[in-house]
Amino acid sequence: LIAFSLLGLVLASCVPGGTQPAQGWSGITLNDGILYMGSMDGKIMAVNPSARSQNLSFPADGEWEYPITAPSGGGLSCSQTSASVAIYGTPAVDEALVFSGGYNGKVYALNASARSQNLDFPQMRDNEWFYPKTSEVIGAIVGSPVISEDAIYVTSSNGKVYCLDKHFGDKKWESDILAKKLWSTPYIEGDKVYISTFDGHLYALSAEDGSITWSFAIAYPKIGFVSSPAVYEGTIFAGSFDGNLYAVEIGESEPLWNFTGGNCFWAAPVVSNSTVYAGCLNGKLYAIDATNGTELWSFDVGSPIVVSPILVDDSLVVAAESGNVYVINPKTGIGERIRNPGNDNKPTINALVQASPCAQEGIVYIRGQDNCLYALDIEQGRVIWKFPLTTQ
């Protein structure tokens, strides 16, 4: 039920007659000491964690914000005037360029230097662009863009995968229609692009031209994959609406194994050292043997898990949708909750968590659905600062 309510939230965002404001669940990317994310009021933001720890005025060094809007009468605008666009995917960053997809059906490349100077967009001499380059749009973009060499890969709600030139935004190819909607984030490995679909298919596409090189279909009709895929040592892992996590060897037509949880596996699994770590909507994080699907341990966080866990040094960090954050030993499954700094009876950050976190040097960064950015020190087990992303 939670999975379908989340789908309904997306459908209501920034569509004609929709009642939900543009929000989104954009995760966080860290590049060269700067955090990049989409805010709930439709901005791409660059945040300097050093400046935030000192509580400096925004924007400080390396910080900027750029609002993504849909112009009057353009595509999926919420009204006849310009409206903020929901950003669901996590930005991808390569050197000075920040890539993001909007629910308005546009892909954007932003130059950090140009945005920090608040120059008109796009600054083409700084390799800024948007796609499509006309007033047209592709389907709403929910998955995150992925960078590989000189290309950007993105899925669209029109059921296609797009490959765009990283520097200029020119379309290299678009795939055939793979499903009615594509909301998953592509997984790139070698010369293949891996995709999971709501209608129960896994695909391997050629990164060169988008042609299908392999496909797999769940045996049960009309049961689709809900999570984005992960690939590890020739096997693709993805969660489905039937409450199973599937492991399929690439090139095969039958699953290697499937693991049944108490609900859907909404978030993409994480695989490390032959162990699959998968959060479930039943509130449990499972550690599963990647070779045979045997459960190694489970940890109950008390509420649905809708974001992937992350490995931080020798620990596994998982954020429950409730806002509680746990630090777990990935080998034993023993863990503890990071406490709320103001009230131990409240969740760790006292806000819903539906956006993917990131970490560096023992600090985990989480964007809550209260449109605030939180920094948590894993070794100390505490929240060290909070920054509102609504800056005006």
Score class of each variant (00 low, 15 high):
residue 6 L to W: 13
residue 7 L to A: 10
residue 19 T to R: 06
residue 24 G to W: 05
residue 25 W to F: 13
residue 25 W to C: 12
residue 27 G to Y: 01
residue 30 L to F: 07
residue 32 D to K: 13
residue 41 D to Y: 05
residue 44 I to Q: 04
residue 48 N to G: 05
residue 52 R to I: 14
residue 52 R to F: 07
residue 62 G to L: 01
residue 76 L to P: 00
residue 80 Q to P: 00
residue 82 S to N: 14
residue 83 A to G: 14
residue 100 S to K: 00
residue 102 G to L: 09
residue 103 Y to V: 04
residue 104 N to V: 00
residue 104 N to S: 13
residue 106 K to Q: 11
residue 106 K to G: 03
residue 115 R to Q: 14
residue 119 L to Y: 06
residue 123 Q to Y: 08
residue 129 W to M: 15
residue 137 V to F: 09
residue 137 V to Q: 12
residue 160 K to Y: 07
residue 163 C to M: 10
residue 167 H to S: 15
residue 171 K to L: 13
residue 177 I to Y: 02
residue 181 K to N: 10
residue 183 W to R: 08
residue 196 S to R: 02
residue 198 F to H: 02
residue 218 I to V: 13
residue 218 I to R: 13
residue 220 Y to C: 08
residue 223 I to T: 14
residue 225 F to L: 09
residue 229 P to S: 12
residue 230 A to F: 06
residue 233 E to T: 07
residue 235 T to R: 12
residue 239 G to A: 06
residue 240 S to V: 02
residue 240 S to A: 15
residue 245 L to Y: 01
residue 249 E to Q: 10
residue 260 T to L: 14
residue 261 G to N: 04
residue 264 C to N: 08
residue 267 A to V: 02
residue 268 A to G: 01
residue 273 N to Q: 14
residue 275 T to A: 15
residue 279 G to M: 03
residue 280 C to E: 02
residue 282 N to P: 01
residue 284 K to D: 11
residue 290 A to V: 07
residue 291 T to F: 11
residue 299 F to V: 04
residue 299 F to N: 04
residue 305 I to H: 01
residue 306 V to N: 01
residue 309 P to S: 06
residue 310 I to N: 07
residue 321 E to L: 15
residue 331 K to R: 12
residue 336 E to D: 09
residue 340 N to W: 03
residue 340 N to L: 08
residue 341 P to N: 03
residue 342 G to D: 06
residue 343 N to T: 02
residue 347 P to I: 11
residue 348 T to D: 08
residue 356 S to E: 15
residue 361 E to Y: 09
residue 367 R to F: 06
residue 370 D to I: 03
residue 372 C to S: 15
residue 375 A to F: 09
residue 379 E to V: 11
residue 380 Q to P: 00
residue 387 F to L: 03
residue 387 F to T: 06
